[in-house]
């Protein structure tokens, strides 16, 4: 949560700074990576846990912030320790 606050205040975390300095992919330093396929699917790497799971809303915890996906008929297509794929009608993605 502390890291998230820093992000909200515009400051970069150590991982982000290191990745930028070394020009390496940020996900190597545990930064979450989200890939959106149109409006129907989103895939998130480096997430920590599921905070809330519903058909209209899914909230995820990552190392740096909380990610809220809102929409309809949402479901988890695939979930493994380091990646989650959510499908459904995605309406909104929010970072808190």
């Amino acid at each position: 949560m502390r890291n998230a606050k820093k992000n909200n205040s515009g400051k970069l975390s150590f991982g982000e700074k290191a990745a930028e300095a070394l020009e390496l992919p940020k996900e190597m330093f545990g930064m979450p990576k989200a890939v959106i396929y149109g409006r129907r699917e989103i895939s998130i790497e480096n997430f920590d846990s599921i905070l809330e799971f519903g058909e209209m809303k899914i909230r995820l915890k990552t190392k740096t912030y909380h990610l809220t996906i809102m929409g309809s008929r949402l479901n988890i297509k695939n979930i493994s320790p380091d990646m989650i794929r959510i499908s459904g009608e995605i309406a909104n993605i929010e970072f808190t």
Binding site: N75, I76, K77, N78, I79, S80
Partner: peptide, 11 residues
């Protein structure tokens, strides 16, 4: 997931 399992098609 903490135990390393992969779960699919969660409704």
């Amino acid at each position: 997931t903490y135990h390393g399992m992969e779960i699919r098609n969660v409704h």
